[in-house]
Design a protein around this nucleic acid. Sequence first.
RNA 1: GGCCCCGUAGCUCAGCUGGAUAGAGCAACUGACUUCUAAUCAGUAGGUCGCACGUUCGAAUCGUGCCGGGGUCACCA
Length: 612
Amino acid sequence: MDIKNILAEEITAAVKSVFDHKLDPKHALISPTKKEFEGAYTFVVFPLVKVLRNSPENIANQLGEYLVENSEHITAFNVIKGFLNLSLDNKLWNAILKSILENKDFGQHPSNDKTIVVEYSSPNTNKPLHLGHLRNIFLGWSISKIAKAAGYKVVKTKVVNDRGIAICKSMLSWQKFAEGVTPESSKTKGDHFVGDYYVKFEQAFREEYTNWQNNEGEAVFKSNAKDGEDAAAFYKRYKNTYFNEHSQLGGEARKMLLDWESGEPNTIALWKKMNGWVYDGFNKTYGALGVDFNDIVYESDTYLLGKEYVLQGLKDNVFYQKPDNSIWVDLEEEGMDQKIVLRSDGTSVYITQDIGTAKVRHDKFSFDNMVYVVADEQDYHFQVLKQVLKKLGEPYADNLFHLSYGMVELTTGKMKSREGTVVDADDLIEEVKQMARTSADERGGLSELSEEERQSIFEKIGLGALKYYILKINPRKWMTFNPEDSVDMQGATAPYIQNAFVRIQSIFRKGGEVSTDWNREVALSNQEKELIVLLSSFPEEISEAMQKYDPSVIATYTFNLAKAYHKFYHDHRILGAEDPSVKQMRLALSKTVANIIEKSSDLLGIGMPNYM
RNA sequence: GGCCCCGUAGCUCAGCUGGAUAGAGCAACUGACUUCUAAUCAGUAGGUCGCACGUUCGAAUCGUGCCGGGGUCACCA
């Protein structure tokens, strides 16, 4: 039972009957009436003005009169300009409330027999997760939940970048400096432990580079600097070349990478050991965040993938080869550049792997859609990937979606790992929980609960606040992370939403009992109707969030629902309602609101406490 | 320079598949707790929707051009 559908049908019938015109469903624009006007839903008649060659007021008035006369649901109407505002019968409001209360799966769309693969998180194994990863993880998790609610079968996956020069740096650094210390012996979380050695490598390398600059580097500077380029600028630009051509440490790290690629047993053993430490650490973080995956792809398994497809593409003239044997694709007709797809030595580049991974995934899951949750600095890469797959004739190429999200910046500027201005994920998680605890202590509640229960509540509140703070913003936008705002507990925040839920739980603890059996003629207040309108729109909100790949749609919706409830709660007595039927209706309404708040928040990965 | 994204209240953001007088939250100020949880509610104040043209009954929303900010254009990932 969906109000908008009911109204759309009745309005279509009215248009047919009054004007003998078949209303285009696209023109059946029905939206909740703005608060300052009388009525629950509004039909916009402007699109009919031209075809009916009549004034908006006339059309609206005639339709209104017809509807009040002929519809059992519509009790009154008013017309303002081309807006036909309709009031609905109490019986309908009560019936809708009952149907939502009774439908345990309300919001869940029927299966569409489609599979969607969501790739998110995708960390490197040389350092711990930070704030930027959190935005990625929250978005990926939420989109997975939303897709499921929208009727998809969902596969959550991540690509672990577990190989390459970066992890070799950590390995080499550990070998040189650790003297056998392990995460266990130093009581350090594994990913942080390995990250520390990565930082140590960078420090040692910087020292080495500075030394070199003061000795044989000077000659290189003099012979290679561009006109007018000063030493600082030159050495900044030259850093990579130095690493590859002069550096002792760089040489050792590259040697390690070659050993790894050739499967040298000691190197492989060290690599496995250190990555194992990192995974232990990551798993703790994922656990704390309440997220998981169905499928994990390791780059070490896939980094050679895609080559065969590229060679096939070369045969099919999708690609072309340069004299040095490197293989390229020409996308200039599509407004893009020439891109390399296979190196001259025959090894894969980034995009080669992505081509391979896409194909393998399609073979494995026969997905209909795939979403890559990846930061917007890779917009161009995904445009290219999509176009290349299209050229290769992959049928799913058009169904790839890059959920491109903006960077998270700090109030002090960009996060830079090299400058140590990165907000660590684990630290942040601890801080937000602590803030929730401090806040609860300040208001003196929850003292009667066990420490275990309190801990669980603070996790929900603290993490909820953080998740909501990040997810409420449109993914596309860059955001500035303000630590104070992120743990704000008032206004458009998770705690505000949780508080609405908790208030409802409290009512039921104080003796409220839900029954589906109440007098269906009970009159509802405007606020009660508004709540029902909001509840009814939950399935649509899910569709919209899915269609836009945007969890902020759900975040805004959930806040609006909580807000409407808080207001209702303030202005109405529930347990102390004047009439038993009214009381039952309000209990049913409260229960339904709690259900939908819980489901809707769950789509954001935010849990509801029973007390706060 | 080419391509892409962003620009709405002091701050953070909704609204953008054209629809009513552009909305929230925060911050500021005022008020509401012997009452179902005040992590709440109500009120006041706050706007050249970056600028200019155009499209039409109607533009924050669509188009074109500019201005400002960012990203990207590696045999890195």
